[in-house]
Write a protein that binds this DNA or RNA. Structure first.
Length: 425
RNA sequence: GGAAGAGUCGCAUAGUGGUCUAGUGCACCGGUUUCGAAAACCGGCAUCGGGGAAACUCGAUCGAGGGUUCAAAUCCCUCCUCUUCCGCCA
């Protein structure tokens, strides 16, 4: 949500933002509706002021004058009701349009038509080279073959129980997941993140707050009670402080949230039909940050949380690159986004593992999360988030990159103590 | 799932149709006093929206949304949340 005042005063900037993000919205219509809304509101408020004034007279008046005034007010009431009826459809259209307005992307966000236009800003390899990794020096297996052979995953029974994209993690697949979660908790905990386990069934309002609704409705599961399953713990974590006034001294607030994540993956039925890359239900450890309303602070923390995840991946020794997402590949509320993508030898390409975004006050306006600064002035906080680690997707790169010629998997050093062994075979 | 009670400004509370421009206490901020502090006293102290250069002004907000009324914190309806009790349950 942007401030209507900002939209009116910077209309061309917001129009450019919509073009850059490939979002279709009629901003001239919004301004016209806002004009009409203001006009009706001004007339309505003048009538209410009159009503309030005469109300005071009615109390003091004698019986004759009183009944006369009441008759007058009955007529005024009809007019007020008529204005309110006029205002209703205007407000509905106004709100619907306001929910569509994109946040303005940062100057540094490149133009582009799709994720193919994201800019690679970094390539990292354990050996220090900055080239794409070479093929493995032996006939390699993909993660489906590897993990099935090692009893780490059971797709057949997963599909039997859940259907398309169903899976069970079994044996060392499950153990490795626990090891990753525990390692992530320690790793990010050492960076000042406070663990948070919250609801994964939430009220609709939280998805409007994060910006997942109204635009991504088809990708979200809901329940017969009109509650929704979260696609990321960002949703419930942002809701944590909804409608609250925080202290500036609390900032930056850093949560490490962990939750199951549910995504319908509508519109991607044909993609990634095998394996653990794209599933309906997964788990994710997520960095969620609230800070003071300062662009510089948002930028600083954005770089920081993205770097946190890079460091986590580096500690595991998995080749990755980082991309700066282009305008078409960043969400409605996001100002700027980096994706970290891990090398998947079986596909000879990088696959997204993490997404770091900042929103300025786009989300906190919708959630009504504010704080008083040192001068006692109320501000909306800024919000950011970045994936710490998703499972099981991380397993794909992990097992494929660490596979040995004999089909066993070497375990990265930091995970060994959490898993209790140095290899899976 | 059932029953009863409750939701008022950061906190605690008053307020059963018009004198509520929502009172009071605490907390907080400024001042007087003091060597300094405490206490006391004086003053300030919600948010959002419209108009205005500003002083200011108008409106909205008493959990949310509707309704009754000339007029609603107050009456009615629906919903949400919390508390207590019963039932069920990990």
């Amino acid at each position: 949500m942007l401030d209507i005042k900002f939209i009116r005063e910077n209309l061309e900037v917001v129009k450019m933002a919509a073009v850059k993000k490939k979002i279709k919205i009629d901003l001239d219509r919004l301004v016209a509706v806002d004009d009409a809304r203001r006009e009706v509101m001004t007339a309505l408020e003048a009538k209410k002021a009159e009503q309030n004034r005469v109300s005071a007279d009615i109390i003091a008046a004698d019986a004759v004058v009183k009944s006369q005034l009441i008759t007058e007010m009955q007529a005024l009431k009809t007019e007020i009701q008529a204005d309110e009826e006029k205002l209703k459809p205007l407000m509905e259209e106004w709100k619907a349009l306001m929910l569509q307005v994109p946040n303005v992307p940062d100057m540094s966000v490149p133009d582009g038509e799709s994720d193919a236009d994201n800019q690679e800003v970094k390539i990292w390899n354990p050996d220090g080279s900055t080239e794409r990794p070479a093929p493995l020096p032996f006939p390699m297996k993909d993660h489906v073959e590897l993990m099935t052979a090692l009893g780490m995953v059971d797709f057949e029974r997963g599909v039997k129980v859940h259907g398309f994209r169903g899976y069970f993690l079994t044996g060392d697949g499950a153990r490795l997941s626990w090891a990753i979660w525990n390692y992530a908790n320690d790793f990010f905990g050492a960076k000042g993140f406070e663990p948070l386990l919250g609801p994964s069934i939430v009220r609709k309002s939280n998805l409007y707050g994060t910006g997942h609704l109204p635009n991504d409705a088809e990708d979200v599961y809901n329940t017969q009670d009109d509650d929704y399953l979260i696609g990321t713990s960002e949703v419930s974590t942002m809701g944590f402080y909804a409608d609250e006034v925080l202290e500036q001294s609390q900032f930056p607030i850093k949560f490490l949230a962990f939750s199951p994540c549910y995504r319908r993956e509508a519109g991607s039925h044909g993609k990634d039909t095998k394996g653990l890359i794209r599933v309906h239900e997964f788990f994710k450890v997520e960095q969620v940050v609230l800070c003071e309303a300062s662009h510089e602070e948002s930028v600083r923390l954005h770089e920081e949380i993205n770097r946190n995840t890079e460091e986590f991946i580096e500690s595991l020794g998995i080749p990755y690159h980082t991309v700066l997402n282009c305008g078409a590949d960043i969400g409605q509320g996001q100002v700027k986004k980096y994706d970290i993508e891990l090398w998947v030898p079986g596909e000879k390409t990088y696959r997204e593992i993490s997404s770091a975004s900042y929103f300025h006050d786009f989300q906190t306006r919708r959630f009504n999360i504010r704080y008083k600064n040192s001068e006692g002035v109320m501000h909306y906080a800024h919000s950011l988030n970045c994936t710490a680690i998703p499972t099981p997707r991380i397993l794909v790169s992990l097992v494929e990159n660490f596979q040995q010629a004999d089909g066993s998997i070497k375990i990265p050093e930091p995970l060994q103590k959490y898993l209790g062994k140095t290899e899976i075979k």
